[in-house]
């Protein structure tokens, strides 16, 4: 059986947390689910529940990446460049630019 591989990308602080929750929801449904926090501004520090969600996602072979060092350090996210993200997207069955871009 081929499993779906899904990547959600977030470019707005307001929808990042829900977007990660959405990725977790797909991982629970037996998909490989990834999230990527792009751009500035800097994220807020995860609360305990949000940090647990990230751990659960990783336990299910998913992950959350970020394109800025500040966001990676703040919330223990995996660093990724736009070029690396693009290559990763080529492996995905579903690519989801999530929510809106905040100007």
């Amino acid at each position: 059986m081929e499993y779906n591989k899904v990547c959600l990308m977030y470019r707005n602080q307001d929808c990042t947390i829900d977007g990660i929750r959405s990725a977790l929801g797909l991982a629970v449904e037996n998909m490989y689910a990834y999230g990527c926090v792009m751009d500035e501004p800097k994220m807020e520090k995860f609360n305990e529940l949000q940090a647990e969600s990230l751990e659960m996602l990783r336990d299910m072979e998913g992950d959350v990446f970020a394109t800025t060092a500040a966001n990676c350090e703040l919330n223990d996210l995996e660093p990724i460049t736009i070029e690396e993200l693009g290559e990763k997207l080529r492996e995905m069955t579903h690519i989801i630019p999530y929510g809106i871009i905040k100007a």
């Binding site: 779906n4 899904v6 929750r21 959405s22 977790l24 929801g25 797909l26 629970v28 449904e29 998909m31 069955t93 579903h94 989801i96 630019p97 999530y98």
Partner: peptide
């Protein structure tokens, strides 16, 4: 409903749009 509905869209539908 829950996010499981999103899973249904991905698993059971021919075409996907976000």
């Amino acid at each position: 409903a829950t996010q499981a509905q999103h899973g249904i869209i991905i698993e059971d539908y021919d075409c996907y749009l976000s």
